[in-house]
Design a protein around this nucleic acid. Structure first.
Lengths: 338, 338
DNA sequence: ATGAAAGCGCTAACAG
DNA sequence: CTGTTAGCGCTTTCAT
């Protein structure tokens, strides 16, 4: 490609083109765009006219390189399809765009293997901030993250010490609360259908420990892949019952799984919740058509997003916020109709 | 900030740092990263070692400026929360990342007013491609879009002539098919609960026209805001019935609205579907707990995403794909249980 | 209030 | 196969 010292053909108009047309220097045009307060009224107007006339669109790539600020925040979540994370991402985006930032989404698909390249691709854009879901797994990535020294907030999980900021809740606490809830309602023969993603595993371990502590037998578990599929709930229940064992309650690592369990129970002629109580997690909105039998753990997903983005914004504005770790908590919601 | 002709302090390592450490020129490092085939084995290895040693993360911002390619595709959808678009965005992201591109999401919130600044923010990043939902509304934006000359695919709507590429289906055809379906099942007194977003309006108009053409009375309509809220379905049905009119079917512009209508009907002691047939749109997966009374229009949302991203990728790869407009169609799904 | 000049980190001819 | 040299389009001191 011929290097043109701006004998501008074909390519989209640049700030220099605007400057020439307006009869001012490039710096002035830059100021009109970024710091209009520093420029005289009539100059500003002349520049604005020129911008409109040639249809100039500022190039943030060049701007970012020069200023070392991208006005980009990267958000990494496992998935947004049919998922609890969609609400969080939406809330993040909304909050961020109010602060003049754009959102770059990275979807891991729960795939730890590709996490590294994803992070590399993201860090290469030099985002001003980072919002992650849970923990970064590979140590190489963690190292890179720390080296990048980008304001980062980890969401959903409040377990380990965060790299920087964090907003979420304790999954272990959810597990324990679930155990106490089920035990408190008199259930003793409890089955588990849990996905194998990291956060679900933490909830499962805590749930199991607490159950044992309360004097229950260690619960039987059906493990399923980390995907939000109702079908896995059905197969999970089948697996649990395969041995002929009987349960009076089944706890699941997500509402989708719980719905699968409920379907399977219905298909097997098991009355929910009378014969079998079913508990989920996430409190997804199934359009008001959640089964009346479903008890679940409610998380304010949008609130997590708003808080995470809010923290990041004040951090980016230079005001280190007071607290860098925020527990949004959770609550157990009983949907069994009166 | 002191302009340093690379007496590199504090800032993250650059390609030049790698080059010096490896004892090669910057171009060689660049080649190792982008075109390893052009570099000798041992040189490559030396460079790789240097990269690992100082923890170098390529700066795509600089690269993008120099090469005029961002490896970024911007996706604009109304919302991803609790929405039919989440699946499409997910599919786009998955397809794109397979081709080495990243996804920048823009969420309009059905807000035509902010569409302009959103588009400006997006175009400023100089994305290599653009995936839009439906039509660009403001003429200023449309002009900018055309001027930018970026490969663009419009999704969901196949109505007007697309700017560049398009994949979707005809909303007018959906409206007509809905009318025929309801009429064919013997319904004559039909009510409508429709959101006021553009695509829903197109469906509504066609539905109404076809109904009239078939000899029905023009249907009564309750209009609701463009949000995926079950609550609006409830209020919609109340509004329809307020005048004391009776219906044997209600068609809605989304499944969420349809679920609201069903709830409201249940609350009013109206038997669905025997007394009142209810029809939705989108075929959202409510975890298998969709009411058996719901008839809906199925759209393969993920397929739209895959196709859109696929078209874009082949376009970006320089192979102008054969067809630039793809109709993915739709189908009417009857969920009334046997 | 405005301009001149240098440079952000990288890629892309071109030469060797 | 590798190095040299010019920029990409913008921001940012530093002067004026």
């Amino acid at each position: 490609m011929p290097q043109r010292p701006n004998g501008n053909t074909s390519t989209s108009p640049t700030l220099l083109d605007v400057a020439r047309l307006a009869g001012v220097s490039p710096s002035t045009v830059s100021r009109v765009i970024n710091e209009p307060a520093l420029v005289r009224q009539d100059t500003t107007e002349a520049v604005r006219r020129a911008i409109a006339q040639i249809g100039y669109t500022p190039n943030f790539v060049a701007g970012g390189l020069a200023s070392n600020r991208s006005r980009l925040v990267a958000v990494v979540v496992p998935t947004i399809a049919n998922s609890i994370f969609a609400d969080t991402v939406q809330a993040i985006n909304d909050t961020l765009s109010g602060g003049g930032y754009q959102t770059l989404v990275g979807l891991t698909g729960y795939d730890t293997a590709h996490e590294d390249e994803l992070l590399l691709a993201i860090l290469g854009r030099r985002p001003d901030g980072l919002i992650l879901t849970g923990t970064v797994h590979s140590s190489a990535s963690r190292k890179r993250l720390i080296a990048a020294a980008i304001p980062t907030v980890q969401t959903w999980d409040l377990g380990a010490a965060p790299v920087d900021m964090a907003v979420g809740f304790s999954h272990a606490e959810v597990g324990r609360a679930t155990a106490r809830h089920l035990h408190g309602r008199g259930h003793r023969r409890i089955g588990l259908v849990f996905a194998t993603d990291q956060r679900a595993q933490v909830r499962e371990a805590a749930l199991r420990d607490e159950l044992v502590r309360l004097g229950c037998a260690a619960p039987a578990v059906a493990h399923v892949p980390p995907a939000n599929a109702v079908a896995f709930g059905r197969s999970g229940l089948r697996e649990l019952m395969a041995g002929g064992a009987r349960f009076d309650a089944v706890a699941c690592s997500s509402d989708a799984l719980a719905l699968g369990v409920i379907s399977e129970a219905a298909a097997s002629g098991i009355n929910v919740p009378d014969e079998l109580a079913v508990m989920g997690f996430g409190d997804l909105d199934f359009g008001g058509f959640t089964s009346p039998a479903l008890t679940t753990v409610h998380i304010d997903r949008a609130e997590i997003g708003r808080m995470a983005a809010g923290m990041l914004l004040s951090e980016l504005a230079g005001q280190r916020p007071g607290d860098h770790v925020r527990d949004v908590g959770f609550s157990i919601v009983v949907r069994e109709s009166a």
